[in-house]
Design a binder for these strands. Structure first.
Lengths: 206, 206, 206, 206
DNA sequence: TCGTAAACGAGACGGTACGTCCAGTCTTTTT
DNA sequence: AAAAAGACTGGACGTACCGTCTCGTTTACGA
């Protein structure tokens, strides 16, 4: 049940200026895109946003946290909504969009946030919940529609299926050993579509 | 009479003490395992290795570079050698070993190096060539044996097949949304084994 | 109504803790006296004063500058004030005091600051204005009293007269070829007193 | 039985290349003139002279010592020799030359060496013996000729007389509060010439 | 309307690490 | 042997940010 009657926490003192928060996030996002994670320092954000350093600390605990907030602010997850045609083509469209994003400069920000998430649990959690999970959920929904209309066989484990789709995309994004194209997405989808037609092969006893 | 056949420069001045290099790498690896990438500072390495800071800079340009060298020094790629039984079971064994490594604390080091590789091209190149490529090559060899003995159908694109195996593993390692188990590896292998039985499905025109 | 007449800047930000500045200067002076100029390193000052290195740099640009500030802080110029007896004896007393100071360990600090002033214009200016000029002014005042009461004849050039007094003292201090005694001061004064009785001798045409 | 009659040192091994020593001194002098004492580092000398650092250490114990050697190598003392005309005019000529040197860029090197001599006894000794003493000796000789021909009265203390001449010159060189001109030298000489006509004034008892 | 409480800018401060420079010393090979 | 080259330790340099703090100033609200 909700913790309080309706909304109002007493709100004593001077209220936060919403422009402050916005300016910080804009500055952080800009720094992130230009110079990667290492460019996102509290110092630089403060400078760029015309804000004092303590003010930033009043909102976030450290620089990567600001970077993550800035990243998540802009980067909404793919929407499953309003896709014309079959579920499978909607799924394909969604993943094409993701591939396009990964291939664009914005992809570097995603990679940066993955990197940032490696050193702090808090960031990892935020990234996982706000970015990874959202993407997975949107794709999950479409996958279920595909299963419902028999475009894809019911998989043993939905999570594994999602990993088979997202894993290779992130892998290429982070390693950079090969480009992320729509064709690549198609190949991944083919695999998923065709793999799940029959019951699992039994792994050998030993 | 020429002093040298061709390559080796005549080695002027006092030669480098191999123990110096070794001590640095040992210290760096230790720091990496204990405290992650942020613990690998030149300062700390120098302290731990009983070496002066300038000496470290004589070998590597910055701390992440030392970390990468330390990581790569120890982490040899999986060997395809001398596996008993069928090619498929050898492949499975190899990937089980990788999954075990990823699940163990050592996995954190791998994740750390992936993260490090995001901010410096030089590191990315080293990591890709020395770690990623080696693992792929070892697996590639086994996959070819599998194809030869018909355990797996000839895939359209070997790189994609490798991405389908490694991608999900790295994805779970980096996102931490689900555990990396041998069972997970088996599921990935199943997919690959079963997906490539027929000719590719035609992607839709649009 | 305007907040300020003219000068004082409104004091933005956290004000400097006066104890910080004091601690730095005390530490620097101590180091200077014990080990000479080379002992006055930012590192050592920070250690001794219990202050961080960046804090010192917030006040002064480098170590010799701190040394100079520390030196000038303590070393007030000779005062011409309240000397009993004739102007000439007051002058003699003042210079005896200076000779005593030069002969004492403190003399080494003076020599050190002269040396320091050779390599940096900024230091030279500070030393000239705060130490040299003050001493000259004090002596100048007494000399004028001497001239007024006819103990000393009006010299052609007061600056030269001052150089004739201070020059030899500094010369001995810096070269160390002979001791700086009160007798030496008396000899210098004699020269000045007796030299300036008549109009200048004409230098030869060639 | 002694290996050698008397003089010839055994000269084993590779003989020192005289060009090495020369190159070092030239480089040091050049650095000294361009950048003052702080520019004379072993590193820079080695670079400039095309010589390795240990080689320099084989000749001199540290950088200021090289600087001093380089300085003394070139800067011979004023010669009293072969001056036409009276002893007094010869003296004047000699001091004019010194004033010219002090006023010229070379004066900065002299000042630098005075500064250098403040921090090391060994350097101080060398400078005193090789530069200061030589100048004093040359002037002393001329002063004696002046005394002999009655241009100057016999002073109480020849050292004080020399200090009265050199002191003000060095004082201006080091403090830079006034220019070093030939006219200044003349004023100093006047003082000395006119001061020493009578017996010393008695300093007061107290 | 007038406190009071928080937001905010500014900058001091202790820290930690950076990457560099130079000093001296040593260990090689070359002359 | 001496010379040349370069490895190596060690100390200090001056800088960049960090995260915290202490100020003065501003802005809203609630008594």
């Amino acid at each position: 049940m909700p913790r309080q009657a309706s909304s109002a926490p007493p709100v004593r003192g001077r209220p936060r200026d919403p422009r402050t928060r916005a300016a910080i996030l804009v500055a952080a996002r800009d720094l992130l895109e230009r110079g990667g994670l290492t460019a996102v320092t509290i110092e630089a954000i403060a400078q760029k946003a015309g804000v004092s350093r303590p003010t930033i600390y009043r909102y976030w605990p450290n620089a990567p946290a600001v970077a993550m907030a800035a990243f998540l602010e802009k980067t909404g997850a793919a929407s499953a909504a309003a896709s014309p045609g079959s579920a499978l083509s909607a799924l394909r469209a969604q993943l094409h969009a993701l591939a396009d994003a990964f291939a664009a400069p914005a992809g570097r920000s995603v990679a940066a946030m993955v990197a940032a998430a490696q050193s702090e649990t808090e960031l990892a959690k935020a990234f996982r919940n706000e970015f990874i999970a959202r993407n997975r959920d949107a794709t999950w929904a479409l996958l279920e529609r595909c299963i419902a209309d028999r475009s894809i066989a019911e998989p043993d484990d939905m999570d594994v299926t999602l990993d088979l789709i997202f894993g290779p995309l992130f892998y290429r994004l982070l390693m950079g050993h090969a480009p992320i194209t729509r064709g690549f997405v198609d190949q991944l989808l083919d695999t998923v579509v065709r793999a799940r037609r029959r019951r699992p092969v039994q792994p050998p006893a030993g």
